[in-house]
C-alpha cells in the first residue's frame, strides 16, 4: 500500500458517497445517468467475485463490500425509490455498444482463460468506459449540477492516482499489470476534457455548462 493507492481508494469512496448523498438529500436523481450506475454495479459484481475464493486483507474485503453495497444502493435509488425524478429521455446512450465489445475483448485478451479471470478482465475493461453514458448525458443537456461535477472529479481522480500507484509498484516491486494499465490510461483520458472544465469553471465558482 502506497500513498497513491490509498488516496486513490479514498477518492473512489468519496465519489460513491457524494453521489449517494446527493441523491438522498435532494430526493432526486436528476442529471444522473442510471445506465452508468448499472454499469458500475456490474463492474464491481464481476470484479469482486474473488471475495468467495480468496481473502487478501480486512481492508480489501471491507472496501469491496462497501463499493458493491453502495453501487446497488445507488441503482435502487435511481430506478426504484426516486424513479419519478430519473431523466430517462436524456439517458439515451446505447450500453450494448460498450458491453458487447468489452465482453469480446475480455475473452480475447486476458491473463488466463478461466471464468473468474475473464470476468475480472471484463470488469477492468468495462470500468474504463462505464462513465460514457454519464458524460453523454451531460453533453446532451449541456450542463451539470456542481455536486455532480464533484462526483465526476473524484471518480476521475481515483484512476489517475492508480496510474501513479502502478508506476510506484513497478519501480519498488518490479510488478505490473498491462491490462489494468492500458484500461486505466483509457479511463483517465476520457476524463481529461471534463477535468479541464472542472478546473476552469467549477473551481472558479461557476456552474458547469457547455456552449450550445
Amino acid at each position: 500500500m502506497n500513498i497513491f493507492r490509498l488516496t486513490g481508494d479514498l477518492s473512489h469512496l468519496a465519489a460513491i458517497i457524494i453521489l449517494l448523498l446527493k441523491i438522498w438529500k435532494s430526493r432526486s436523481c436528476a442529471g444522473i445517468s442510471g445506465k452508468s450506475q448499472i454499469l458500475f454495479a456490474l463492474v464491481f459484481t464481476t470484479r469482486y467475485l474473488d471475495l468467495f475464493t480468496s481473502f487478501i486483507s480486512l481492508y480489501n474485503t471491507c472496501m469491496k463490500l462497501i463499493y458493491i453495497g453502495c453501487a446497488y444502493a445507488t441503482v435502487y435509488l435511481i430506478y426504484a425509490k426516486f424513479r419519478a425524478t430519473y431523466d430517462g429521455n436524456h439517458d439515451s446512450f446505447r450500453v450494448e455498444f460498450l458491453v458487447v465489445p468489452v465482453g469480446g475483448l475480455s475473452v480475447l485478451i486476458n491473463h488466463d482463460f478461466s471464468p473468474l479471470e475473464i470476468l475480472w478482465t471484463f470488469s477492468i475493461y468495462l470500468e474504463s468506459v462505464a462513465i460514457l453514458p454519464q458524460l453523454f448525458m451531460i453533453s446532451k443537456t449541456g450542463e451539470a449540477e456542481t455536486i455532480t461535477t464533484h462526483y465526476l472529479f473524484c471518480l476521475g481522480l481515483y484512476r489517475a492516482l492508480y496510474l501513479f500507484n502502478w508506476i510506484w509498484r513497478f519501480y519498488f516491486e518490479g510488478f505490473f499489470d498491462m491490462i489494468a494499465i492500458v484500461a486505466g490510461v483509457v479511463q483517465t483520458v476520457l476524463y481529461c476534457d471534463f477535468f479541464y472544465l472542472y478546473v476552469t469553471k467549477v473551481l472558479k465558482g461557476k456552474k458547469l455548462s457547455l456552449p450550445a
Binding site: H12, S54, N60, H111, E117, R169, F175, D177
Partner: peptide, 10 residues
Amino acid sequence: EEEGKLKDEL
C-alpha cells in the same frame, strides 16, 4: 519485471 494481476487492488 513480472507481468500479472495485482490481486490486492480494488
